[in-house]
């Protein structure tokens, strides 16, 4: 069953048309990789799904868990289980990582009708998951993303994903700026998250990430539409031959 159904979406950013009729259907438990050259609309797609202001649909429809997302604000989407791992995670000086996470986790729990976690239970749960992801306690004591290295920021995104347990996780170039060790940790986090219930959209430039997280489908996004879809072999083809052949043929 489709957890996410993107149907012929057009979207303008500051009056420039970026998405030009994109369609994509993601079923529960699937991992979809979206690849494409710079400026193809990959990040726009992720902001559109997360509900950033200025990224409202021009036309088309997106159904998330049977709900029309155009009627949902960004926080409502997150509470309902949409998650975006940012390409450039934002620093929040003065906001403690633990308080931030607890606020986020409890918003989602409240939405799901679950009891909110008290401070102690939350810390216990956070420490448990942090340990799995090699995130030190000391990092949780800092302000959100402040003083984190590039790799730590990305790891912290995946850590948030694990804590929030979303239905659809959109990872926007989570692999960029990671060394091999960090890539391994982040990929393990995503692979642990994979289940029959959870779906992942991996946005990436490079085939490298797909060696660690093997997708069910690969889509090539260019000029605001999906030019070609296939299995993991499509990513290998791109790695070898570049995007030009696919884009021109389409």
């Amino acid at each position: 069953m489709a957890i996410l159904n993107i149907n012929n979406v057009h979207l303008n950013v500051e009056e420039k048309q970026i998405l030009k009729g994109i369609s994509l259907s993601v079923n529960k438990g699937e991992v979809h990789a979206i690849m494409g050259p710079n400026g193809s609309g990959k990040s726009t797609l992720s902001y559109m799904l997360a509900g950033r202001e200025g990224y409202e649909l021009e036309s088309g429809q997106v159904l998330f868990d049977q709900m029309d997302i155009s009627t949902m604000s960004a926080d409502e989407r997150a509470k309902a289980g949409m998650f975006l791992a940012f390409q450039y995670p934002v620093e929040l000086p003065g906001v403690s990582s633990m308080n931030f996470l607890r606020e986020a986790v409890n918003s989602r729990r409240k939405y799901l009708g679950e009891a909110e976690l008290n401070h102690l239970d939350f810390v216990k749960e956070a420490r448990r998951i942090a340990k799995e992801m090699f995130i030190k306690d000391e990092m949780l004591k800092r302000y959100v993303n402040v003083g984190f290295s590039g790799g730590e920021k990305k790891r912290f995104e995946i850590f948030q994903m694990s804590m929030l347990n979303p239905k659809v996780a959109v990872l926007d170039e989570t692999d960029s700026g990671l060394d091999v060790d960090a890539l391994k940790i982040v990929s393990d986090g995503v692979n642990n998250f994979r289940s029959k219930e959870n779906s992942v959209i991996l946005i990436t430039h490079y085939q490298r990430l797909l060696d660690y997280i093997v997708p069910d489908y690969v889509h090539i996004l260019a000029d605001g539409v999906i030019k070609k879809s296939g299995g993991p072999e499509l990513a290998l083809h791109v790695e070898k031959n570049g995007y030009a052949g696919i884009i021109n043929a389409a």
Binding site: A50, G51, R52, E53, S73, A74, D75, A78, K79, F83, L84, F86, P89, V90, L92, F100, E103, A104, S107, R108, Y111, Q160, L164
Partner: peptide, 11 residues
């Protein structure tokens, strides 16, 4: 910063 928080389910 606002969007980052909102994207985590915070109003």
């Amino acid at each position: 910063q606002i969007f980052y928080l909102v994207s985590r389910g915070i109003s």
